[in-house]
Every structure is written in C-alpha cells, then in structure tokens.
Design a protein around this nucleic acid. Sequence first.
DNA 1: TGACATTATACTTTTAAGGGTATATAATAT
DNA 2: ATATTATATACCCTTAAAAGTATAATGTCA
Lengths: 66, 66
Amino acid sequence: MIIGEKVKQLRRKTNLTQVEFARRAGIGLRFIRKLEQKKPTVRLDKVNQVLDFLGYHLEVIKNERK
Amino acid sequence: MIIGEKVKQLRRKTNLTQVEFARRAGIGLRFIRKLEQKKPTVRLDKVNQVLDFLGYHLEVIKNERK
DNA sequence: TGACATTATACTTTTAAGGGTATATAATAT
DNA sequence: ATATTATATACCCTTAAAAGTATAATGTCA
C-alpha cells in the first residue's frame, strides 16, 4: 500500500484531526496533508517522524517476483 | 536496518560502481552517494526509484513492542 | 437542510535537496 | 610499494519541499 494512504488510515484510527496530529507529531500541517494526498516527493525523515509517532517504521522488502 | 545501508549492500551485490549504478538507475550520482551515507533527508520518490531498480520496495511495518 | 467540524487548496518565504563535475581520499590488486 | 579503481568531499546552481495561515470545499450529523 502507498505510504500516504497507510498513514491516513492509521491517523484516523487515532481519532486525531490532521491539525491535532501534526501538532503532536511535531510536523507541519501542510506536510501531513500532502503526505496523505500521496505526494511522492516528500522527505524521508519527515515520513519517518510521522511513522514513529504512529508506532510504525519503514522496511526494505524484496519484490514479489511475478 | 537503515535504508541507505541496505541499498549499499544491495548495490554491491550487483557489482556495479556508484557511477554505473546511478547511470542505470537513472538517478544522480550525488544522490546514491548521500543515500548510502545514510543522509536522512533524502526524497522518498528517489529512494523508491533506487529500490525499484534493485527489485525492492518500502513497506510500513508496525514496531515491535518492547 | 443547516450548523459545525474537517480536509483541501492557494499564497508566499526560507531553506536545502538534487544535480554535474572536479579533486581528494581510500580501497584494491598486481 | 605503486598503479588503478572506487568512494568521499567540495563548489556552485536551480528547483522545489516544508512551513504557517487564510479561504474554499467537503463531510458529518442532528
């Protein structure tokens, strides 16, 4: 799944609005918006910051060979 | 594992130099260098481009609860 | 349907990522 | 040891990511 999509989903589970989420996660409101809208050119450190707040992280996974 | 570290490891397996790797993966030489040096503020789309070339991708994973 | 809450879009500034290339440093091999 | 190859660092420029905030659009629910 696209990261932004996943983040949106996870944030909603926390019952936090984008505004409150951004504030608590210590990132910009604009950023969380863009991220959830699947902007591809976001910075990795910011993504990590968001995921960390959610209790998640990124891993490098081998593709399924089809 | 840190993404840059993993990339470095995977690139070496391909027996490509940074120069050749960058050329073939269609990314800047500077980028692959910085990435492998674990620069945290790299752009996600570029990381994806590199991983894609290597046959890998990123996934959002729940943290181990300790 | 109308009031309220939430998210998306728009405007602007600052900062730094990404880029090529040249040079220095380090690693490898003969 | 020294020649060769690879990686790291430095210089400089262009572009756009990130940021806050204001406003428009959308969603929610009583």
